Simulated scan of single mutants.
Amino acid sequence: MTNNSLLLKASFLRNPSQNGVGRYVCQLQRVVLKFCKNHGASRGLREFIEEDLVDFAKTNPGVVVYLKPRRHRGPVIKAEYLNGQTQWLSCRNFTKDEINKWLNLFKTQQGDKEGIRLRKLWHTEVPSIQGPWTPYTFRPPSLNVVEYPNENLSAAKEEKSATEELIELFEKQKLESLKLEKTGE
Rank of each mutant, 00 (worst) to 15 (best):
T2Q: 09
N4F: 07
S5A: 01
L8M: 10
L8N: 06
K9H: 10
V21H: 12
R23H: 14
V25G: 04
L33S: 02
L33Q: 08
K37N: 12
R46H: 11
D52Q: 15
L53T: 01
A57C: 09
K58A: 12
T59H: 10
V63L: 09
V64C: 10
V65K: 13
L67M: 11
K68E: 15
R70Y: 06
H72I: 00
H72F: 03
H72V: 02
K78G: 02
K78W: 08
A79M: 04
G84I: 08
T86E: 15
T86H: 12
Q87D: 09
Q87R: 15
W88V: 12
L89I: 00
F94W: 15
E98L: 09
E98H: 08
N100Q: 14
L103V: 04
K107W: 06
T108D: 13
K113W: 01
L121Q: 11
V126E: 11
P127T: 00
S128E: 00
G131P: 03
Y136F: 11
T137F: 01
P140E: 11
P141G: 02
V146N: 07
L153C: 08
E159V: 11
S161C: 05
S161W: 00
S161V: 00
E165I: 13
E165F: 07
L166V: 00
F170A: 13
Q173V: 02
L175V: 02
E176I: 02
E176M: 07
K179M: 07
K179E: 10
E181H: 09
E185D: 05
